[in-house]
Computed example of a mutant assay.
Amino acid sequence: MSFDAKSELLKALKGNANLVSICVGGFHNLKANDVTKFPRIVYAEIRNADEDFADNEAISAEVRFQISIFNTEENISSQTAIAKEVDKTMKSIGYTRYDSVDLYEEDTKVFHKAMRYQKIFR
């Protein structure tokens, strides 16, 4: 199967006006371009594999993403609102959340909420 899941995800994130207004640091794949702007979202595709087969052809694929929300002490109060908007957005395009964890990056003094989602494309 050939599907650009990253493009679908980015379009959905950018299409959420509430999320765009809160995340002044923007949306980035794998790493942020400007590491000084917070809050921001970094997304990474962590799985994209063919699943079901018929006549030796893949008929579905499982895709998983990690959506990471990064905040500093100055804007940590926005983390919950951002997480709710991310969750709403991901569910609107057919993903389900299977994990979420709050982290603190000691070296950079940045709060990191990692949320993991999966979807089966048919």
Rank of each mutant, 00 (worst) to 15 (best):
A81C: 05
K91W: 02
R40P: 02
S77Y: 03
A83K: 08
R97S: 13
Y95R: 11
A44W: 01
E74P: 01
G94I: 12
K109W: 04
S78D: 09
A54C: 09
F70W: 15
A61Y: 13
K88R: 04
A49W: 12
N56M: 14
S78R: 12
V86E: 00
I67T: 01
A61G: 10
F53D: 09
S60K: 08
E57Y: 13
E73S: 12
D99Q: 12
K88D: 01
I41V: 06
S77R: 11
E73K: 15
I76W: 00
I76A: 00
E106G: 08
T72I: 15
A49T: 14
V86L: 01
I69D: 00
I67V: 10
R40H: 09
K88H: 02
H112L: 06
D107P: 00
Q66P: 00
A114K: 15
A81T: 11
D102P: 02
T80K: 07
Y104C: 08
N75Y: 04
A49P: 06
Y104A: 10
E85L: 06
Y43H: 04
N48C: 08
Y95E: 01
I46Q: 05
E74T: 05
D50M: 14
K88P: 03
I46Y: 04
I69S: 01
D55P: 09
Y95M: 11
E85Q: 07
Q79W: 02
A49R: 15
A44Y: 00
E105K: 10
R47H: 03
D52P: 01
K113V: 02
F111A: 13
T89L: 11
E62H: 13
E85H: 07
K113R: 10
T72F: 15
I41D: 00
F111R: 14
E85C: 04
Q66L: 01
S100G: 13
E62R: 15
T108H: 03
T80V: 04
F70R: 10
V101L: 11
D87S: 09
S60W: 06
V101G: 05
M90R: 14
R97K: 15
T96V: 10
T80G: 03
L103C: 06
A114C: 13
E74V: 07
